[in-house]
Design a protein around this nucleic acid. Structure first.
Lengths: 117, 117
DNA sequence: CTGACATATACCGATAACGGAATATAATGC
DNA sequence: GCATTATATTCCGTTATCGGTATATGTCAG
């Protein structure tokens, strides 16, 4: 067994920075492949391959337009990621850090654990 | 060149489901390795290896406690993920989808692009 | 110091991603 | 049909993951 396929889910697909860049480049609307090639400054086959991965996890849709293929963002598969990280949001919010500290202190007093270190 | 290292950043570290499970198991507080082994039902070396990855990206901290090692969650490195996905939140919110549709329509009218399809 | 327990590391095989280069497919124009 | 443009696919080498098994490190008890 090896690492999960990049096409296994959005988590894996989006772990690659270039693929995030591609998605970022598509926020303003659909774009042909060559547009992305120019924008990201990487080889065309590379872009096509990354787009395939994104397509397999449903993060982009394609539409034929003459000899071009217009790729469009479909961010819905990112929702599970959003939902998962959201559960941890409190951890980097300073306000919550303070609250956590206070709660921890209260808990320790409650336990009466005065055994020095 | 191959795939980015799992220890490259939180995106890669968290792409693995088991590592997300480990983080999830640590939300209630620090736990020794064996606790996680039992909880996740996977081999101990596997857990240790996943914990190493999580440690290298700063998602967990360790504390020695006798012959045990207590691992504690540190979710701050997840913030970049949160920030990134947040930008796409509108895409799966139906309200925003509607708003987008309206805006698109307005834009098209403004352009006066009446060329049928 | 020896044995038991807790955890980490090393080694192995299988899998596949990534980038690069070459080539295949597809549509347009003449 | 042939050349050109746009994109996709294939082949290749390098690299690193992941799980498994065995073993090393470290700590406590007697």
């Amino acid at each position: 067994m090896a690492r999960s396929a990049t096409t296994a889910d959005a988590f894996n697909a989006v772990a690659e920075g270039r693929r995030r860049q591609i998605l970022d480049a598509l926020v303003d609307g659909e774009r042909p492949v060559n547009d992305l090639v120019t924008r990201l400054g990487i080889a065309q086959p590379l872009v096509s391959k990354h787009l395939r991965v994104l397509r397999e996890v449903g993060l982009v849709d394609v539409r034929d337009h003459g000899r071009q293929r217009l790729y469009q963002l479909n961010a819905r598969p990112l929702k599970p990621i959003h939902d998962w990280v959201k559960g941890y949001e409190r951890s980097w919010s300073e306000r919550f850090d303070l609250l956590d500290a206070v709660l921890l202190e209260l808990k320790e007093e409650e336990n009466g654990d005065g055994s020095g270190e």
